[in-house]
Design a protein around this nucleic acid. Structure first.
Length: 509
RNA sequence: GGGCGUGUAGCUCAAUGGCAGAGCAGUGGCCUUUUAAGCCAUUGGUUGCAGGUUCGAGUCCUGCCACGCUCACCA
């Protein structure tokens, strides 16, 4: 059984017991709400504006959490807040009677939920308020939330005094963060709007939303270590998906022209400001197009989401003004790296020579890195941080892109792009490889590479190859990191600020 | 995993190696139009955990835990 751990909790528990002794339930079953906080204020102001109506005849029953209270002798003011906003309660002892007033004075705390009914009025100070006839406790708060006081300035801006800012506690107790920090609530509203906008855009462009397995017998579609779990009755190890790619492309074999999925991917890798072990991915695939089609669609979709969420395609991110208005800059990976590092990697066709060139340029490399990984290092270290404005980087080395079609006449490169905005990778797309024999060869090549590194054996998905042998239409596919997109649209510098419950290490002792 | 940093009251923060404090919240009192209300009084601490140095440790040292930044890792 829970025990108070501090004086405020002891006081609140005592009040709860006193209420029970008076026969008052601190957690009643029934509640009556006629108006939200916002509606109550709006109804009064509308009556004020309409000369014909008597605003004092506007009666309401409002519900919410007490976020400010001011006991002033025989009158009591409180602000209650619900999901729509705040409204002030004005309680007078001569109106509610001594018994009810005593309950208000002795037993209500910041954080409690109450229901108040009465007529709307305007105080002498001018604030629209509920002149309370009856007030009912709806839920007692036994633990105190951080107290944040607000002052509304002349110009309407809100200044906040006090804070709940400890990052760890905000994440571990997100409910408390949300309860007291309206800015946090706004982030997750925008997150929902973002996802809704992506979905709406794709729906309106002929895409079918689908759901594919999260528990997969063979993981694939990306290079990452998986989480492993086990089905007891089937005696089968299963993997939490690291991407949706291979299942979604099976659906193009199945004659859907365009499909997408928004869902969770799981990667058993390190965490960082842009990595969480589970994250939300959007992948969409469209037949009869290629990566150019994916670029066109992607830039329009992201611009649409920005417009829907922020009302503009021009946003601010980490102090940068970023213009998401299409069309976006396109540059080949080769040109991008050459312009930033001075290294034209095609001049160094094998890992040892490229590594030498990179070392000569003062770049750090891993001695065991493959040629493709070295190119990727060049991208990450010299190019990625410079790509603040939205930029498609095109044409990647074949040996780090096993699902992309080759660039015609170019044995080195495949038709792939990655999308960068604000210096962060936002997406990855290919002209999808639909040649089953070439795909099998790529699988075998990757399998060999990873076995050499003895890091993660990439399993070969024979069923995917079988699907492709039935014929897969030419298509483009793209994956978008939804959390990162939300970071961009809400100007948050870490992924944890846009995840309601980010992964944290379990607390010991 | 490495480096740097942080951890003190419910919240936000102070405290030269020398009595562990403030504001807000809480408690008691005054106050019938307050709004960061005000005034008077007052409660609240295993200073993340475990050791060590010292006459004396929140402070210095070691280890551990958690978090942040960063590097590595991450096609």
């Amino acid at each position: 059984m829970w025990q108070p751990t501090n004086t405020p909790e002891e006081d609140r528990l005592r009040k709860l017991h006193e209420l029970l002794e008076q026969g008052i339930s601190p957690y009643p079953n029934r509640v009556t709400r006629t108006h939200t906080a916002r509606q109550a204020v709006a109804a009064f102001e509308a009556a004020e504006a309409a000369q014909s109506a008597d605003p004092s005849l506007v009666t309401v029953s409002v519900c919410g959490r007490i976020v400010r209270q001011n006991l002033k002798g025989k009158v009591y003011f409180a602000h209650i807040e619900d999901g729509t906003g705040r409204v002030q309660l004005f309680v007078r002892i001569d109106r509610v009677g001594e018994a009810a007033y005593d309950l208000v004075r002795r037993h209500l705390d910041l954080g409690d939920f109450v229901q108040a009914s009465g007529a709307m009025m305007r105080t002498r100070a001018g604030e629209v308020s509920v002149l309370v006839d009856k007030i009912v406790l709806l839920a007692k708060a036994l633990s105190p939330l951080p107290v944040i006081k607000e002052r509304v300035n002349e110009d309407g801006t809100v200044e906040r005094y006090g804070a709940f800012s400890d990052v760890e506690e905000r994440y571990r107790q997100r409910y408390a963060d949300l309860a007291v920090n309206p800015d946090t609530r706004e982030v997750f509203r925008k997150r929902a709007q973002t996802i809704n906008a992506l979905r709406t855009f794709l729906d309106e462009h002929g895409f079918l939303e689908v759901e594919t397995p999260i528990l997969q017998p063979i993981y694939g579609g990306a290079a990452a270590r998986p989480f492993i779990t086990h089905h007891n009755q089937l005696h089968q190890d299963l993997y939490l998906r690291i991407s949706f790619e291979l299942y979604l492309k099976r659906l193009l074999v199945g004659m859907y022209d365009a499909v997408y999925e928004i869902g969770r991917d799981f990667r058993n890798e390190g965490v960082s400001f842009k990595h969480n072990p589970e994250f939300t991915q959007l992948e969409f695939y469209q037949a009869y197009t290629d990566y150019h089609g994916m670029m066109d669609l992607t830039e329009r979709m992201v611009a649409y989401a920005a417009q829907r969420v922020n009302g503009s395609t021009i946003i601010t991110f980490e102090g940068h003004t970023i213009d998401l208005t299409p069309p976006w800059q396109r540059i080949t990976l080769r040109e991008a790296i050459k312009s930033r590092s001075g290294i034209d990697y095609v001049d160094y066709p094998d890992a040892p020579s490229l590594r030498q060139a990179m070392l000569a340029a003062g770049l750090q490399t891993r001695p065991d890195a493959t040629w493709g990984k070295l190119v990727d290092t060049l991208l990450g270290d010299t190019v990625e941080p410079t790509l603040i404005q939205p930029t498609f980087v095109l044409d990647y080395p074949r040996d780090i892109s096993p699902f992309a079609k080759s660039v015609p006449g170019d044995p080195t490169h495949v038709e792939r792009f990655e999308l960068f905005i604000g210096g962060i990778e936002m997406g990855n797309a290919f002209t999808e490889l639909n040649d089953p024999l070439d795909q099998e060869a790529r699988f075998l090549e990757m399998h060999r590479l990873y076995r050499e590194e003895d890091d993660e054996a990439t399993p070969i998905d024979e069923d995917y190859l079988r699907a492709m042998r039935y014929g897969m239409p030419p298509c483009g596919g793209c994956g978008i990191g939804v959390d990162r997109l939300v970071m961009l649209l809400t100007d948050r510098s870490t992924i944890r600020e846009v995840l309601l419950f980010p992964h944290l290490r379990e607390r010991q002792s």
